[in-house]
Amino acid sequence: MKTTIEIDEEKLGSIMRMTGISTMKEAVDWALNEAVRIATINHIMENPWSPEEARNAVDPDYDIIAIRNSSVPVKYQKKPRAKSK
């Protein structure tokens, strides 16, 4: 969505320098994502699950060991070398 807003240029510049982000659009998007992440963490901390909710959060049939043992390892192939002239 396109919109016109006033942004504190010093704060925007600080974000861009500290993160290495090169465009204002990317910096604003990064800042919004960080704000959502922090707000989510704060919400979870202020509203912890009850023991019952925690027990029901994971499927009882979930078995990480079985999943790890059944997965096929990735095989990496060498890239063909460029022929020298």
Results as ranks from 00 to 15, higher is better:
Thr23Val: 05
Arg55Thr: 08
Glu53Asp: 14
Met24Gly: 07
Asn47Ile: 02
Leu12Ile: 04
Pro73Asn: 07
Met18Pro: 00
Ile7Arg: 04
Lys83Thr: 14
Lys25Phe: 06
Pro51Ile: 07
Pro48Gly: 06
Ile64Ala: 14
Ala35Tyr: 10
Lys2Asn: 07
Asp61Ser: 12
Glu34His: 07
Ala57Thr: 03
Trp49Gly: 10
Ile15Val: 14
Lys75Phe: 04
Ile38Asp: 08
Glu6Met: 09
Trp30Pro: 02
Asp61Gln: 13
Ser50Ala: 07
Lys75Asp: 07
Leu32Tyr: 05
Asn42Ser: 11
Ser84Val: 13
Asp63Leu: 09
Ile64Tyr: 14
Ser22Ala: 13
Asp8Lys: 11
Ala31Leu: 06
His43Ala: 15
Ile15Gly: 00
Met16Pro: 00
Ile38Pro: 03
Ile5Gly: 04
Arg68Ser: 08
Glu9Cys: 00
Lys2Phe: 06
Ile15Trp: 00
Trp30Asp: 07
Pro80Ala: 12
Glu46Thr: 08
Arg81Tyr: 04
Ile5Pro: 02
Leu32Thr: 10
Ser14Leu: 13
Ile21Arg: 01
Pro60Val: 03
Ile15Leu: 02
Arg55Glu: 15
Leu12Pro: 00
Lys83Ser: 08
Ala39Glu: 09
Ala66Arg: 15
Pro60Arg: 05
Arg37Gly: 03
Ser50Trp: 03
Asp59Ser: 09
Arg17Trp: 00
Ser70Thr: 05
Pro48His: 05
Ile5Asn: 09
Thr4Tyr: 15
Val58Trp: 02
Val74Arg: 14
Tyr62Pro: 00
Ile44Ser: 03
Gly20His: 01
Ala35Phe: 12
Glu34Tyr: 03
Gly20Ser: 02
Asn69Tyr: 05
Lys11Asp: 01
Lys25His: 11
Asn56Lys: 08
Glu10Ile: 09
Ile5Gln: 07
Val58Thr: 14
Met18Cys: 10
Ile21Glu: 00
Arg37Cys: 05
Trp49Arg: 09
Ser84Cys: 04
Ser14Ala: 13
Ala54Thr: 09
Ile64Val: 08
Asn33Pro: 01
Leu12Ser: 03
Val72Trp: 05
Asp8Val: 06
Asp59His: 08
Arg37Thr: 14
Met1Phe: 09
Ser22Phe: 02
Asn69Pro: 02
Lys2Gly: 14
Ile5Ala: 10
Lys85Val: 12
Lys75His: 04
Glu52Tyr: 07
Met16Leu: 02
Tyr76Glu: 05
Pro80His: 09
Asn56Ala: 15
Lys78Met: 12
Thr40Arg: 11
Pro73Ser: 13
Ile21Met: 04
Arg68Ala: 12
His43Asn: 15
Thr19Gly: 01
Asn69Ala: 12
Val72Thr: 10
